[in-house]
């Protein structure tokens, strides 16, 4: 009886693990892409007004 259910249980856990992992990977890479884009802009000297007043604030001073 257990064996005939194990495929259902494995499928439920497996699909959930894959979906949550994919969600995490997407969120992680999106975060990295935005951090990179912001660093790139700051490296080109484009800053927010609040950071122009205090340039020490910017972490990306090359």
């Amino acid at each position: 009886m257990q064996a005939e259910y194990s495929a259902f249980i494995a499928a439920a856990y497996g699909i959930s693990a894959v979906a949550i992992l994919a969600l995490f990977v997407w969120i992680f890479f999106d975060a990295r892409a935005q951090r990179k884009a912001l660093k790139g802009l700051e490296a080109r000297g484009v800053r927010r007004r609040s950071d122009v007043a205090a340039p020490r604030n910017a972490e990306s001073a090359r």
């Binding site: 999106d30 975060a31 935005q34 884009a37 912001l38 802009l41 484009v46 927010r48």
Partner: peptide, 20 residues
């Protein structure tokens, strides 16, 4: 929390790109 942080950065990137 991670997604919110990313969204804040995305809006900064958009604003700075317009500024540039």
């Amino acid at each position: 929390l991670t997604a919110m942080r990313t969204e804040i950065l995305r809006r900064r990137v958009a604003a700075l790109s317009r500024l540039a």
